[in-house]
Structure formats: structure tokens, C-alpha cells
Design a protein around this nucleic acid. Structure first.
Lengths: 192, 192
DNA sequence: AATCGTTGTTAAGTAAACATAACACTTGCT
DNA sequence: AGCAAGTGTTATGTTTACTTAACAACGATT
């Protein structure tokens, strides 16, 4: 156990993700087109994603080989059961993350969506499940969350000494000015 | 404004990120080696990341061209001011995300770290700032967070009808069984 | 029936990141 | 001094994911 943190290779899990960012968007494009237009062709996917038909054709034939995309009798694009599952999971993650950034952290909606889009396909099932439970609980406490996101917006960028911060305590230095490049700020040890 | 969501190209922001996942780890490897060994050479970076020296040499010379990595008078590797800034930001993001997954969501530490590692370099400065403020506030409420992460662990996977869920309400369908592939679950509209 | 437009595929090129292998250069030992 | 080991670079190849351009197949219009 804990192989990932000791064999100096755990960081490559990023590339071994089930779907890459672009694959995620191919799948969601098909899903979106089918629910909007009722069908999805190579050209539609290319148009929606703003890439060339050639690129879409190659990528999609790859996804057919991998069993994520299929064709219906009229050669329109379909998601396989697995492809559909992946697309839905990623779409759900997008919703969850956007909701968290926007409603809990009180962030700008555009930035919230942009960040969610980058992360949506990388969340583990565990994170995804925990996040949705977290949001359900937190969002039911309307007054609490209102106050919270207000406090976040108004908080300063440096810890005030009076309130000992559990984030800073382990290292003994304040993590708040983390945008300041030159401030040395030792962190918990990592193997790389 | 809101160009990102309408020009059918916003999803590529992923590839236009300032640093890729691997670049992030090259920078952090140098940082880590210098604080552990006092120096960093191509071979050390390659050894730590478990890649070939050739790959490390190429990648690092690229990073020198980009101005993120430099050499000291003895040809040991150094982070430039910008490189150092990036490394620290990403390391901070890792700490924040791990803390969130582990202490707020109550997730398994190994999974928490693995997920944080995938995301750390993708967080916008806004997310990062908001997250640290959020954690500071939340972690100061020890009893609240204790109860929260317990509730998350014990929560079921389906919404119970009695408590109207703000996540499900917009779509009218329950978002909880999001691991179930076949359950149709309309989401807020996206352009792809 | 011939042509034009759309569609999908294929070919060839680019760029990022890895791999392996061969090489040059230094350093330290004997 | 000479050789072996360690270090860094370079050459070449692979994979992924895009580009543009050429091409074949098909349908609709005239």
C-alpha cells in the first residue's frame, strides 16, 4: 500500500487517467449533440469543439477502437454504455465543482466554470462522492453558507496572529501569502 | 466577456495552462532536491522522478529557455524567480487540496493526495485564494468540521425526499446516483 | 446526367513528452 | 597516466493530439 507515494512514479497517475481532457470533451460533445439535435456526426462534433473534421475523425475512430463510441445503423455517433457512463460522471463532476467554487467559495462564475472544466475529468470517484455529500449538507444550511462565502470574500490575505490557523501551524509559517513568490514556506514533505 | 463559454474553444484552456503537469513536477523536484540535498542536478531530478536522464535533460533545457530554470556558477540547477514562484504556488495548492479532501471531505489520505496531485497545477489563483480562506474559517470550527466529515462518511448515495436538495432541484432529478451510468440526469447546459 | 456541396477519411506535418542508445566530458582510483 | 564510473547531451523513435490539404463517396440541384 501507499506505493504511489514511494516509488517515485506516483505523479504519472495523471497521464494514466482513464480519459484525457480532450477525450472527455469528445464524449460530452456527443452527449450534448444528441440531446440537442437528436444526433451527432463527426462534423457536428468538430464544429462544436471548434477543431478540424480530420482531427475529430481520427480521435473518434480511436474512441471507437477503445469501445467508448459506437455508430448507430445510420452511421451516426453513439456513446457506448461505458462512454455514456464516463460522460455523465464528468458532467456531474463539472456541476459539483462549479457549484462548490461558485456557491461555497463565492467565486466569479466564469472562473468557477473554467476551473471546474479543467478538473472535472480528474476527480476520483471517492472525491466525487464525498463532494456531492458535502454539498448536500452544506447547501441545506443556507444561512451558514451565506455567511461563509461573505467571510471568504472579505478575508485578508495574511493570517492574523490572534486566531491560530490550523493550516499554518504544522509548518510554523503562514500559508496565506502563497502568491508571494519569495516568501519561504516549508511544506509537508513530498517525495518530489 | 464570457468569451470562454461561447467561442467553442474555451475547453482548450486546459492545454494553455501556464505549466503542464510534468513541468510542475520538474520544478517541484528541483525545489525538493535543493532543500533536501542542497543541490539539484539533471541526474538527481531524473532519479527522483524516475525518468531517463535524457528526458530530464531535454525537459530541463526547455525550462531554461522558458526562463523557469537556471544554473548556478557550478552548473547546478536553480529555479528562477518565476520558477520558484510557480513551484511554491503549486506546492501550496497541493497542501490546500489535500487538507480539503482529507480533513473536510474525510477522504482516505492516499486518495486525497493522489487527487490533489492531479489538480494542484490547474487551480486558478482565485480558487487557490478562496480555498485557503475557506479552509482557515472552516478548520477553526473544529466541532463543526468533525460532525460534517462524519455526516459525509455516513451519508447514503441517494437523496431522501424529505430534504429538498439544492443540487437536484434545478434539474428535477437526483444527482446523487451519479455513478450509475444509465440514469438519465439532465444538467445545466454547456456549449459542449 | 453532370456538377456542386457536404461529409468522412486519409496523408503529411507540428509539438509536447516520454523512451533507448550512443557519445563526450569530467573525476577519482590505482 | 590510464581506465572506469558517473554525468550531461544528442540522436532517433513512439505516442497523443492537433493542423492543413487532398480525396472519395454521396445527395441534391439544375
Amino acid at each position: 500500500m501507499s506505493q504511489m507515494t514511494n516509488d517515485s512514479t506516483y505523479w504519472r497517475a495523471f497521464d494514466e487517467n482513464k480519459v484525457s481532457h480532450s477525450v472527455a470533451h469528445y464524449l460530452m460533445a456527443i452527449d450534448h449533440l444528441r440531446s440537442e439535435l437528436g444526433y451527432a456526426r463527426v462534423t457536428d462534433v468538430a464544429g462544436l469543439m471548434n477543431i478540424s473534421r480530420g482531427a475529430a475523425s481520427l480521435a473518434l475512430s480511436h474512441l471507437k477502437e477503445k469501445g467508448l463510441v459506437e455508430e448507430d445503423p445510420n452511421r451516426f455517433l453513439l456513446l457506448s454504455e461505458e462512454g455514456n457512463s464516463l460522460a455523465r460522471t464528468i458532467e456531474h463532476n463539472f456541476v459539483l465543482l462549479t457549484c462548490f467554487f461558485e456557491n461555497v467559495l463565492g467565486m466569479d462564475p466564469d472562473i468557477a466554470r473554467a476551473d471546474a472544466c479543467k478538473i472535472e475529468h480528474l476527480l476520483s470517484e471517492e472525491s466525487s462522492k464525498a463532494l456531492i455529500r458535502f454539498l448536500r449538507i452544506l447547501l441545506s444550511k443556507k444561512d451558514f453558507i451565506q455567511e461563509l462565502s461573505q467571510n471568504i470574500k472579505n478575508a485578508g490575505d495574511v493570517c492574523e496572529g490572534d486566531a491560530p490557523c490550523p493550516l499554518c501551524e504544522p509548518s510554523g509559517e503562514c500559508l496565506m501569502p502563497h502568491t508571494d513568490a519569495l516568501k519561504s514556506c516549508p511544506l509537508q514533505t513530498r517525495t518530489d
